[in-house]
Amino acid sequence: MLSGVGIICFTASYGVALVLELTRLLFRSGIRGALLLGFTGAGLLAHSLFLYYRAASAIGSPLSSEQDWYLWAAWALAGTYLYLTYYHPRTAFGLFVLPLVLALIGVAVFLADPQPFARKPASQVWAAIHALSILLAVVAVLVGFVAGVMYFQQARRLKRKLPPPRRLRLPSLEWLDRANSRAIVVSTLMMGVGVLSGVLLKLINHAGQTDSVPWNDPVVLSTMILFGWLVLAVAIGLIFKSARAGRKVAFLTLASFVFLVVVLGVGLLMDTQHGGKNRSPTPACHSPCTVEGGTS
């Protein structure tokens, strides 16, 4: 029914939106805003239908595989971009957000494992909470990263006393600062819920066993380090008033992104028991055609 709606459809839509964003650097246009909303909206619709189709027909619940998880993360980030573009049509958010959306889709298609996570019926709710909260934490870190990069670019221009480039509009430092601070808080809260639900999930699945939580698993370990870093970042802001705004918050969000890349890299490339899988260090080649429901 929806087999024609594939990864290539929404990837192409986001790709066109990115090209349209790039044209901001070249010329002004009265219709670019409408085209951007149109292509991103169409891409998001196709993306939603694709994910719905996968959840409904093949696997039974969303976020049930590593591949799904990356596609949902891309969907959430694309949705954030659409929202921002609708309310701030003259700001070039797409130049920063869309490459991340396309990168997440790329990882989903070429690197992520399409095999479903091992689940027991009793722990499905906790598994969903775990996956969803980690996903939201990751999206918040990515949004914070984008806001951090924009902050440094804007601050650099202002320090150099240059007029704002008309073709690459950025939000004010105050707006970016607020986005950074919120991103750190949201990502920490969501990561906390994710870690807690992950522990509970393990305890439920391995009831009665003494070593139920594999703390030394690379994914678990790196996730805990990321969580620890996020808690530290929030604590720094709470303790030191001067770290609540400006460059320091932007630095914290950039560092969070680096930690996130490490965690995702570990999850993709290293041998891990996380999610009930056991994989050799060499990533399996998942061609796009293995994605169920896709036409790519």
Binding site: Q154, S172, L173, E174, W175, R178
Partner: peptide
């Protein structure tokens, strides 16, 4: 006008 529009408004949102 440059001071307010090109610089102050790029620092502060409101």
């Amino acid at each position: 006008s440059v001071a307010v529009a090109d610089f102050a408004q790029q620092i502060f949102e409101r």
